[in-house]
Amino acid sequence: MTDTYPSLSLVPKTDIAITAKDFKSDQEVRWCPGCGDYSILSNVQAFLPELGLARENIVFISGIGCSSRFPYYMNTFGMHSIHGRAPAIATGLAVSRPDLSIWVITGDGDSLSIGGNHLIHALRRNVNLKILMFNNRIYGLTKGQYSPTSEQGKVTKSTPEGSLDYSFNPVSLALGAEATFVARTLDSDRKHMTEVLRQAAAHEGTALVEIYQNCNIFNDGAFDPLKDNETRDDVTMRLVHGEPIRFGADNSKGVTRTEDGHIKVVNVEDVGEAAIISHDAHAKDPGLAFALSRLSNPRTLENTPIGVFRDINRPSYDRLVREQISDVIERKGPGDLQSLLNGSDTWNVS
């Protein structure tokens, strides 16, 4: 088990068998009935036992928002912090405590509006954090204002005539911020989410997992095209490392390179199977991952890739911090307080 998750090699293992039930806290869950957050919670609780970690060495840190109530419901260590700052707080914890498995829970507003700065810096540093971004394309907790992922023109309480802001694509943003692991999954697809969480947990460094989450009160049905039996297969592009990128009913669609070097969605029949490109999540160059992230239509959700866009190796920031410190100690020996206080230029008064 240890070897499956090299990123968790320093985290103590549980010495008793634990199940999903052990991860349920005694706090009553208070999301609106039908909220997508419920399924994410139960998916995470069902997945965690697989890691085999001591429960007391798992920490959930969140910001503010409906989604950020998540830690209260997990029977682990947890902190519900302040709006947007969870990645910063988690960074301090990760740097000082390599023996913890640290998960950040955040919303689209929490991580992309007020906390945008901390998100991009956590990603570029590659701190050993697993960030689950619950994207419902709306501000839930403050009762339904548009968010940075809301589609332009969105009518909300704060934009009765339609929003004018152009939206963020969280996957594109993360890739631009030098993220080493970027994935997208759906609240309602336990199997898919579990597989994505598994890969995220194994990744050393920051893993950003965007989870499309339905807010049935303020933005109901935002992801319906990806969920309805009718449309689901037609719009959802499931990315699997090493496999040809094909989707649609009967796998009739695929992604190919155009002559000018871009990529586009085509009918496989029209170009032939050989012209369909394969997904390479391990490619050093983020070009393909970025291009894939741009294929989806933010309004109709056509051509929406889900799965792991990018998963590359780069030493985590917290590991580098520890290595630098131990390297200095090895070279110079541990510090001696008295000689530090004395400094190099002293004199005696007798």
């Binding site: 840190i61 912090s81 910063a88 707080i89 301090g92 700065n117 100690i329 510090g335």
Partner: peptide, 24 residues
């Protein structure tokens, strides 16, 4: 003073600086 095991984190802004300290 890494010899004393001191961890210094130059954050992206002062909010992250205090945030990381709270995490630690």
């Amino acid at each position: 003073n890494h010899r004393f095991g001191v961890m210094t984190f130059q954050a992206e802004d002062e909010i992250a600086g205090v945030g990381a300290a709270i995490g630690a």
